[in-house]
């Protein structure tokens, strides 16, 4: 059963905050959605290792340096930057 406690736990994992009313609503919705997802419960099959998509060593990026992106571009879309770095509120 998808209860409020589980919703609150998932909200924490998702870094989303809900008001009490919102959490109640989202729990109701999640219950509905999860009931649809429960269709998978009666499926049984064993998984075989799927190696089909694997690539060889010769197909991957060679160890050759490329130019990095100018710092101004890297920081361009940040709402807040300070001293050439991303500004992060204090981590507790």
């Amino acid at each position: 059963m998808f209860d409020i406690k589980l919703s609150a736990h998932l909200a924490e994992l998702s870094k989303l905050s809900f008001t009490e009313t919102e959490l109640y609503e989202v729990t109701k919705e999640m219950n509905e959605i999860v009931s649809l997802m429960d269709a998978v419960s009666d499926f049984t099959a064993t998984e075989a290792l799927n190696t089909a998509a694997a690539v060889g060593l010769d197909q991957i990026r060679a160890d050759v340096k490329c130019d990095s992106t100018p710092r101004s571009e890297i920081l361009k879309n940040a709402a807040k930057s300070e001293k050439n770095a991303f500004a992060v509120p204090k981590v507790v």
Binding site: K15, L16, P89
Partner: peptide, 24 residues
Amino acid sequence: DGIKYGHRSEIGETYEEVIKNSRS
């Protein structure tokens, strides 16, 4: 999370609060 790009909430003091509010 509002730090590198995208909407950054004005509300919150800590990293945890700011990213939760930004995402919410």
